[in-house]
Design a protein around this nucleic acid. Structure first.
Lengths: 213, 213
DNA sequence: TAGATTGTTAATCGATTAACAATC
DNA sequence: TAGATTGTTAATCGATTAACAATC
């Protein structure tokens, strides 16, 4: 079985958003065209992507919204709760601790860690901040497999090493540092400056077109 | 002239990070292979991407680091300061107001806006929070062309409309809502749940490989 | 000079899109 | 039944990779 293409995978959460909107409007079926219209995509792309999740639609009828939502959630792994820890309770880390979008996707941050003793012992949006010493015991106690890194770039690799030692298997790295981890650990980079670069260049290109360089 | 491919554009900020590291180590030239090794990419891809920024290297010598940094910064539009406003001073908005990575890229958030009267008048990480009424006058006063949206999904479209009326030409949308804007306005989505989905699925795939489903 | 590294042209790979048969 | 919509197979498009000539 061939694995889902990365661009398709990235579109799945968008489909989920749209489907949840449709559902809250009381609808119970959608066609690929309905979804495509919401997202400015082509219907054929939706159908191709849906096939990867294993869901099948009915010709003439379309897809059952409830089944489709379940299939996508299950495919991504959002149908059951997942525990995570967060390292780095600075401005970005604090924001993520309070981000409502995570609980919507069944992600639960069970503990935060920070080397700053001033922050240790505090509770940020209902999550307790611990010293780094506590990392391994808490990770193992809650059987945590996923970690979020929101520390400054110079600390990113040290933190990564500690997480790996504690048994973490997936790291979501919000620091712009390039971190190295063993092959069994999945690392997802989330460098905000990438998105900023894309926006800037596209704005420039658009301005050039209108002659307003 | 054909425009830079999106994947290449997204790699440019990573090159910049690596080059700045090399520079702080006192080096003044790099080869494509040096960069590739840092980022787990192939040298040929670096050379192809560099060509888009217009920079040329010297056979046998490689690229001049200072020139390369300048060329990439200039290409992206990070060599001069850019003003932006932020709408939605909630947890994520507050984080972005304090995010050090932006000033490194010459992005200056001149004002924040929030409909919550409790937040209005406060100063968050040196940025003043205003009521939405002030949006248009402040945007025009500072000649702001770029805006960051960090409001809850139901407000995203209303905020977008207000930004467009105020003359904003580029929107960085951190809300998971799909927003509509006129064609002259560039919209960059930054939905964190996309990255989360990619991490989850890749973790699952890795577990399956090790037989630990 | 000889070797290393760039930049270009061609080949491959993978994702998107098109065409169309199957079917509720 | 006829029309609409799915899912599959083929064609196109674009990005990555390979091969290699140019050159400091």
């Amino acid at each position: 079985m061939t694995s889902i293409p990365l661009p398709s995978l990235r579109r799945l959460p968008r489909y989920l958003n749209v489907l949840e909107n449709f559902q809250s409007q009381g609808r119970d079926t959608v066609s690929a065209t309905d979804i495509a219209d919401e997202l400015d995509l082509k219907p054929i792309q939706i159908r191709k992507d849906m096939a990867f999740t294993g869901i099948v639609g009915k010709p003439k009828v379309g897809y059952n919204i409830f089944d489709l939502i379940s299939a996508i959630r299950k495919f991504i792994g959002w149908s059951k709760e997942t525990n995570a820890v967060l390292v780095g309770a600075g401005s970005l880390g604090t924001a993520l601790l309070g981000y409502e979008g995570f609980s919507r996707r069944n992600l639960k941050i069970v503990a935060a860690f920070d080397s700053n003793t001033e922050k240790q012992g505090r509770t940020v949006y209902q999550t307790r901040v611990y010293s780094m010493d506590m990392l391994e015991s808490i990770v193992r106690e809650h059987n945590v497999k996923m970690a979020i890194i929101t520390v400054p770039p110079p600390s990113a690799q040290t933190v990564t090493d500690a997480l790996v030692r504690a048994g973490i298997l997936g790291i979501w790295n919000f620091s712009p540092a390039e971190i190295q981890a063993p092959p069994e650990v999945v690392v997802k980079r989330e460098d905000l400056s990438e998105g900023l670069a894309v926006l800037f260049v596209h704005m420039q290109e658009k301005q050039l077109q209108t002659g307003e360089a």
